[in-house]
């Protein structure tokens, strides 16, 4: 890789954190480039949140080097916090204030905030701008969390499971929000246990299991690297279905063309989906 440190928004090497006897994070190396959307994908308890909390500067680490926007998050300044937007997994906002009051007040903490009304519109809460927060639904509160995360116009946005509990429509709406922020040049690190979410949003992703990175790359790379074996299915002349697992599906098909005159009945060639790869890498294959 030719990427220099200066182009990296986040860099960790040998990151470790133990809780009692459990290695929550057991040696994680990350290199997130400026401007990219990076997905940290893994099942619950894999170490995603701990990793992100260390990057935010809100959790101590036991070992390893960490650099976020050029600083160690364990000892940061107000100027650094102005450049990092955070959306936690479990948030709560002042129930008695309205959406506009809250977003407008948080804007005051930052040196170069975005326009509060524009941010409220960005997360789709215009109609709720005058409502007290206690009157919002769960999904609306989550969008408010995102609004508070981006109100300072961050260079880096850290999102911990932002869409947990969203219905499918709200999730799609949220995805377009993330794409818009990414298009504006914000570097985004997002954790999720939804594979389709990582695949839809992330330029690159790391699959994390038992505190370690099991695989890393673009969604296409991951699928290619971990799914060289294809499955060829067809129906024999006597009507019996056949399945063959092979590294060379083209050769199999060439043989079939020779055997069948014209069309091969029921021909189907498939590669494992990213989900198959994910489940295998995180040791959850048996659940299928």
């Amino acid at each position: 890789m030719t990427t220099t440190t200066a182009e990296l928004a986040v860099r960790t090497a040998g990151l470790r954190k133990r809780y009692g006897d459990i290695d929550a994070v057991a040696g994680i190396d990350l290199a997130i480039r400026t401007g990219e959307v990076f997905g940290l994908l893994g099942p619950n308890g894999a170490g995603k949140s701990t990793t992100v909390e260390i990057l935010q500067g809100h959790r101590t680490r036991d070992a390893g080097d960490v650099e976020v926007l050029g600083s160690d998050p364990a000892s940061t300044s107000r100027a650094w916090r102005a450049k990092v937007g955070i959306v936690w997994q479990d948030e709560s906002a002042p129930a008695e204030l309205t959406v506009r009051e809250t977003v407008g007040h948080f804007a005051r903490y930052y040196p170069r905030p975005r326009d509060p009304d524009e941010v409220i519109a960005l997360v789709g809460l215009e109609e709720k701008a005058g409502s007290r927060i206690k009157a919002l639904s769960g999904g609306q509160r989550r969008r408010l969390d995102v609004a508070l995360g981006v109100i300072g116009g961050p260079e880096l946005l850290l999102l911990d499971e932002p869409t947990t509990g969203f219905d499918p429509a709200a999730r799609r709406q949220f995805w377009s929000l993330i794409r818009q922020l990414a298009a504006e040049g914000t570097t985004i690190l997002l954790t999720t246990h939804y594979l389709e979410e990582a695949e839809a949003l992330a330029d690159r992703l790391a699959i994390i299991a038992n505190g370690r990175i099991a695989a890393e790359g673009t969604p296409v790379d991951l699928r290619r690297a971990h799914s060289s074996e294809a499955t060829v299915e067809w129906t024999e002349a006597d009507g019996s279905p056949r399945t063959e697992h092979t590294q060379t599906p083209t050769r199999t098909v060439a043989e079939l063309i020779g055997r069948f005159d014209g069309e091969i009945p029921g021909l189907r060639i498939s590669r494992p989906t990213l989900e198959d790869v994910y489940l295998r890498l995180t040791g959850q294959e048996s659940v299928r």
Partner: peptide
Amino acid sequence: DEKVLRRLRGTPMPPSV
């Protein structure tokens, strides 16, 4: 307990505020 303080700590707000 409700993480209101943690959220404030994540912003550049000076603690004295």
